[in-house]
C-alpha cells in the first residue's frame, strides 16, 4: 500500500530537502521502493542533494503539462536501485502546478511506489499547499528556535484544514523531526529544549537530528547523509527516524554534549 508523505516546515532553511533525501535513501536502503518528489518549482534543490542534477531531462511540470510521460521524468539513483527522484522545474514558477495535474501524478506514483515523499517548498502558498494536499502523513521539520517553531505551528494548522484527508474529516498523521539540534546550546538556554518544542507543537516526535558538519559535507558531494557516511550521528538518527516511520519502536536518544574534563571543570566553576 503506497504511502504519501510530505516533508514540510513553513520556514525555509530548516532542513526539509536534506531530510527528504536522507529519509528517502534510508527507506530505500531498507528495501522500500521510494520516490522523492521536489515540489519547490523554481528553486529546486533535491536533485543537487541527491547528486542527480546532471541527469535531469524532464520534470514534474513537464509531466503535469503532458510534455513527458511519468517514467521518462523519473530519475533512478545510481547508488540505490529502488530510489527515484521526480525533479522540479527550475525555469517555471509555482503557478505552473495545477491541482488536477498534481492529483494525477500522485495517483500514478501510488501505483508504482511504496513511499512517495514530497519535498515541500518553504512558505504557505500554492507550492506548499499542493505538496501537502494528497499526504497521508506529514513530517514537520523544525529547528529548536522560536521562529521555526511558530511557523511549524502554522503548518500543522494547515495540515489539519487544507489537506484532502482533513476535508474528508480524517487526520493527517503528523511527525515532528527536530533538526540542527545542538546539545550544548540547548543546555545553555541558547536554544529551545526538546521539551519546549514538544510542549508548543503537541506533535509526536519522529527523531532528533544533531547539528553536524557531516550534513553539509554530504550535501556538497551530492549524497544524502545516510548514504555518504552511514555511521555518522545524523545518519544514524535519520535511519532510526525512517524505521519509526515504518512502525518500529526505537527508543529516542536526546543527544548530549560530550565535554572534555577541562570543559566540565570549567563549566562547574562558572556555575
Amino acid at each position: 500500500m503506497a504511502h504519501v508523505l510530505v516533508v514540510t516546515s513553513g520556514k525555509g532553511g530548516v532542513g526539509k530537502t536534506t531530510s527528504t533525501a536522507a529519509l528517502g535513501a534510508a527507506l530505500a536502503h531498507d528495501g522500500e521502493k521510494v520516490v522523492v518528489v521536489d515540489f519547490d518549482v523554481g528553486l529546486r534543490n533535491l536533485d543537487l542533494v541527491l547528486g542527480a542534477e546532471r541527469r535531469v531531462v524532464f520534470d514534474l511540470i513537464s509531466v503535469i503539462n503532458g510534455v513527458a510521460k511519468l517514467p521518462q521524468a523519473l530519475i533512478r539513483d545510481k547508488r540505490l536501485e529502488n530510489l527515484f527522484l521526480l525533479p522540479a522545474s527550475q525555469t517555471r514558477d509555482k503557478d505552473a502546478l495545477t491541482e488536477e495535474g498534481v492529483a494525477s501524478v500522485i495517483s500514478e506514483l501510488r501505483q508504482k511506489f511504496d513511499w512517495i515523499i514530497c519535498d515541500s517548498p518553504a512558505g504557505i502558498e500554492r507550492g506548499a499547499t499542493l505538496a501537502m494536499r494528497h499526504a497521508d502523513s506529514a513530517i514537520i521539520v523544525t529547528n529548536p528556535e522560536v521562529s521555526s517553531v511558530r511557523d511549524s505551528d502554522r503548518i500543522i494548522g494547515l495540515l489539519d484544514s487544507k489537506t484532502l484527508k482533513a476535508e474528508r474529516g480524517e487526520r493527517v498523521d503528523k511527525h515532528l523531526l527536530i533538526t540542527r539540534y545542538h546539545a550544548g546550546r540547548a543546555a545553555r538556554g541558547e536554544m529551545l529544549s526538546i521539551e519546549d518544542v514538544l510542549e508548543i507543537l503537541l506533535t509526536p516526535l519522529l527523531g532528533i537530528i544533531p547539528e553536524s558538519e557531516e550534513v553539509l559535507r554530504a550535501s556538497n558531494v551530492g549524497s544524502p547523509v545516510t548514504l555518504n557516511n552511514a555511521s555518522s550521528a545524523p545518519a544514524r538518527a535519520y535511519f532510526d527516524a525512517a524505521r519509526r516511520l515504518k512502525g518500529a519502536e526505537i527508543p529516542m536518544l536526546i543527544p548530549i554534549e560530550s565535554r572534555g574534563i577541562f570543559n566540565k571543570l570549567f563549566g562547574r566553576k562558572a556555575a
Binding site: 522560536v146 511558530r150 511557523d151 505551528d153 502554522r154 500543522i156 494548522g157 494547515l158 508548543i200 503537541l202
Partner: peptide, 27 residues
C-alpha cells in the same frame, strides 16, 4: 477541543469561547 494553531482565528461574537488545548503564538 483542538489546539488553536498559529495563523488560525476563532471568532465567536455570540458568547464565551472555551479552548481545551493551547492557543499558539500568532493565533
Amino acid at each position: 477541543e483542538d489546539p488553536v494553531r498559529s495563523g488560525q482565528s476563532v471568532v465567536f461574537i455570540e458568547g464565551d469561547v472555551t479552548v481545551l488545548g493551547s492557543v499558539g503564538s500568532g493565533a
